Simulated assay, not measured.
Amino acid sequence: MENGAVLANEGEFTDDLYSEAVILIDSKSGKVLYEKNSQQQMYPASITKIITGILAIEEGHLSDTVTVSQKAREVIGTRVYLLEGEEVELKKLVQGLLISSGNDAGLAIAEHISGSETAFADNMTRFVKETVGVEDTNFTNPHGLFDERHYTTAYDMAKISMYAMKNETFREIVSTKELPWVGEGWETTIYNHNRMLWNYEGATGIKNGYVQKSGYTLVTSVEKGETELLAVTLNAPSSNHAYRDMNRLFDYGFEHFETKMISKDEVFEDLFGNEYTLAEDMYITTKKDEIVFLDVSIYGYLKVIGTQNQLVGIRGLQRIEDQYTQNSPRFLASVGRIN
């Protein structure tokens, strides 16, 4: 995720936000569009379950049968009312965790995957640091109940959430509005606690949270056309304030920015006839309706230049065929533009 120049810090977004820490990013390019205190360590509450869920999906077997322990049965806070000794499929526990925010489902997952809550928390911290690549996060439990050593930042949560949303199973679960739940101790329909799924067009997930010492926390993604934005708000004074902030961020983001894709199938050629391609599709964030120019260097880089001659993005290229000699002059050749 790009954490360089923040596009929004040009006087366009002047709305006051209630949340103590905030970040808005383009999910595809990783560009930061707005931030406030995004590197400040905060308490996440139940958005912790994003990591628990993606770990269960990636490191567990969703068809596994999990036996609920007494400890999981007795965990405090929001629950899906599992009973001690109840046997539940792992995927169902992940659904109860992410849709209905079940703390008991989170602890049952942790004990199944790693043998204990402590071992799973260590695994969570290792995973987000080594696999996702964040630095300012530490977990002590799978559900987000308060602990002074259980913390993250808005920036880290955005990066973690971007990673999780690339997994189609995770993505499907966090976008589910309601689901029939039939258990030994509870038969009902569970409803997703993230109201953005109902209240904001294009919302695709992902999780809300609250404990007294963390305030109200919220992570949401919204997709419109080719653009998908993701926002994190931490320590809002009320649920309504958190949702108000989230709405303002997305309204601003979609009004001012859009995502453009440069295909890996496109062939780029410099003035000497050398041909290149990208290893994978490249996503860039631009101001709405901005035209950008593509420059290819015989050193093997594609530069995306904005209308004010600013560097929008840069990516290494793969040479299709070596056609130039060592004595060829080396300079940038403009090859086109995208609208």
Rank of each mutant, 00 (worst) to 15 (best):
A121I: 09
I99Q: 00
V128P: 06
S100E: 12
S101M: 04
G144Q: 15
Q95C: 01
G96C: 12
G106E: 12
N103E: 05
A108L: 12
P142D: 05
G133C: 15
N138F: 11
G133P: 12
S114G: 03
H150L: 09
N103G: 04
T125W: 04
L97Y: 01
E148F: 14
F146H: 08
L107A: 04
L107V: 15
A105R: 02
G102N: 02
F146I: 03
D147R: 06
G106R: 05
E130S: 11
S116M: 07
S101T: 06
K129T: 10
V134R: 03
D136V: 09
D104W: 04
D147A: 14
E117H: 11
A119M: 10
F127P: 05
D122V: 06
M124E: 15
A121N: 11
P142T: 01
D104A: 05
N141Q: 07
S101H: 03
T137V: 04
G96N: 08
A110C: 00
I113L: 03
F120P: 02
T118R: 15
D136E: 14
I109F: 10
P142H: 03
K129W: 07
L98F: 05
T137I: 06
N103A: 01
M124V: 07
Q95I: 11
I113S: 00
I109P: 02
I113K: 00
N123Q: 15
A105D: 02
G96T: 05
E148D: 09
T131M: 11
S101Y: 00
V132E: 11
G106V: 08
V134I: 01
D147C: 10
F127M: 14
S101W: 03
F120G: 02
Q95K: 03
H112T: 11
A108F: 10
N141Y: 01
E130A: 06
S100G: 07
F127D: 09
L145Q: 10
S101F: 00
G106H: 09
H143Y: 12
H112Y: 07
E117D: 08
F139Y: 15
G144H: 07
S101D: 00
F120T: 01
V134M: 04
D147Y: 13
A110S: 04
K129F: 08
A108S: 03
G144E: 08
V132D: 05
E135F: 06
F146S: 12
E111M: 06
N123I: 10
N103V: 08
E130Q: 14
N103C: 13
S114N: 10
P142C: 11
I113E: 02
S116E: 11
I113T: 01
V132M: 00
